[in-house]
Design a protein around this nucleic acid. Structure first.
Lengths: 341, 341
DNA sequence: CTGTTAGCGCATTCAG
DNA sequence: CTGAATGCGCTAACAG
């Protein structure tokens, strides 16, 4: 593989000149520039970024870690993040941690060796004191952005206020008159995202002076099947819930299915609210009321923030909290039988 | 940031010894190893992979290019691919080309400069002679794997036989007695994936000696909205189709919605078959018959193949063609009014 | 404008 | 088993 030396030789110039036409073309005479360009073409030369990066101490790489991407929110965030970063000449290393702190740590180490210039943590992480400390340590030197995960003072955060989103949803159901509300949530003891949503739900119940014991807080696998199975169980209760709020749209679709099978028309016999505003939420019938999370904006803003910090380092961490919106569609109605307030 | 030199100094050994405890620990005496490890700990030393890679000419990086990841198939493939690669010590650069040949070329160049050791092209690409030539050129030196895109002799391919999948679906509908079949496909003049599906569809029609003119071949945006709008138009035709086959599950969900709004019960008044076997296909009601694409297996196999080629280079390109399966669920039935064969 | 020179941080000969 | 020395490919002073 051709090097800068080979080019210099065949173009009859010094390596410095070759380097110049690559980096500051204007600083080279027309004549020599042409010769160099020609040699590059002829030898099919591809600059070795490793050498350049070693010398300049700039890699133009950032790392992004996430537990999983097989959901409807994450890919959109990544896509918009990558688009912006790529357009600005940065490239991205992607690792899937599978929510395993061990793996996460390993991948962070790897990226550190690769000298990434910044980190993005996307999606809810497991609680892991050890890793958190390490991340905080990194954040002293590099920009670290956490998306949908808020905890540490030294890292930047971008997220929808999930507690607020859950609060809006729960309040909406309560305001409609629902009292037996089921909340199908993920494991709030392990994942921050479910922790916050639970907070918001409880806040709404508290504020509206509703009776929490009438509600069912169920921990489910945060996917279609988890929602389906939990809903089936709930619908067979003597006092079945009149409304279901779920921590994700996928879960809610499972609830839809269970409702259909149990002959519970939505929204007449059952109100449903999902979470995330993914395309699927408007594909179902009836269109689902859901809490929007602005996936694309989130990714873009993360990239912009990253670039901004990267440009003028050092800089203090910044936070951006999106206010989620409750998207009202056709899956909610007052409870059928005028349950007393 | 501490370097190998600093470690050598504080451990009172040579840089060679430090390098050895990092790479071949057994080749160093217990005593010195301990001293080095201690110094590493104390100075918080992180090896510089760039220097190492420059020296050894091995980056342990592969690049993956794809047009977009906001669909249900791609993320699963990527996830399983990454998991396997990461587990084997490789890392991955990800770029989203947006199906833009210009961008694609740019990103390939970038990755080449970064000295990735292999390329994966995932998902249908635009036809682009220029880039294809370039990719073939690269494939002479590096492993190049194309997923869901089959064309060039010098690159390895992993894919579902999409033509076969479409063939199975169309044949199923024809065998049920359907003759007015609508095929909602993406743009087959621009994307290989839709080209192959069309091939398969036409083959089935031909083999069953059905009348092609009774069918509607419609080019739609390959998403929910595209399916919905096209279906609405079709359902208002005097001779509306009795069955719809779509190039993707998302499109099919749009068809579901349109059918619901037009009072056409599935499968009694309308049969529907989707493509890709994504979770959504079994979330809808009734559960959708669809062509499975084995997303997870695809990603894993791609990684295994990549690793295999990477290990014993050079090696000839290999192809793996998955036989897609028609997953029979509840969205198909014979046409209602006994349409004459 | 141009060429010479000196490293960036590390792995790897080659002697010892 | 260990250390001194060399160079991977490139950029960035520094003189000219």
């Amino acid at each position: 593989m051709a090097t800068i030396k080979d080019i210099a030789k065949t173009a009859h110039v010094s390596t410095a000149t070759v380097s110049r036409v690559l980096n500051t073309p204007d600083a080279v005479s027309e004549e020599r520039r042409r010769r160099v360009l020609q040699a590059i073409e002829r030898l099919n030369y591809t600059p070795n970024a490793l050498a350049r990066e070693l010398k300049t101490n700039r890699t133009g790489a950032v790392g992004i870690l996430l537990p999983d991407i097989t959901n409807t929110f994450t890919p959109t965030v990544i896509e918009s993040f990558l688009q912006v970063m790529n357009r600005h000449g940065y490239n991205t290393l992607l690792c899937i941690t599978n929510a395993d702190p061990q793996l996460e740590l390993e991948y962070i180490r790897m990226m550190n060796k690769k000298r990434v210039e910044g980190f993005v943590f996307l999606g809810s992480r497991c609680f892991s004191e050890k890793n958190d400390d390490f991340i905080e340590h990194i954040a002293q030197k590099l920009p670290v952005i956490a998306i949908d995960y808020l905890d540490k003072p030294s890292v930047s955060h971008i997220m929808a206020d999930e507690a607020q989103g859950a609060y809006l949803a729960a309040r909406h159901l309560l305001a409609l008159g629902h009292r037996r509300i089921a909340f199908l949530n993920g494991d709030h003891t392990r994942y921050t995202t479910y922790y916050y949503k639970r907070e918001g739900f409880l806040r709404a119940v508290h504020e509206m002076s509703a009776d929490l014991s009438a509600c069912s807080l169920v921990t489910v696998q945060p996917n279609y099947l988890g929602g389906y199975e939990a809903a089936c169980r709930l619908f067979e209760l003597p006092e079945r819930p009149t409304a279901v709020f779920t921590a994700g749209d996928q879960i809610a679709v499972g609830v839809y299915r269970a409702a259909q099978e149990h002959g519970l028309p939505i929204p007449e016999a059952l109100s449903v609210i999902g979470f995330s505003g993914s395309p699927i939420s408007m594909s179902v019938y009836p269109p689902m009321t859901t809490v929007s999370q602005f996936a694309q904006e989130t990714g873009e803003q993360a990239a912009r923030l990253m670039l901004e910090i990267l440009q003028k380092t050092p800089s203090a961490p910044q936070n951006m909290i999106f206010a989620p919106e409750l998207i009202l569609r056709q899956s909610c109605a007052p409870p059928q039988s005028g349950i007393p307030l």
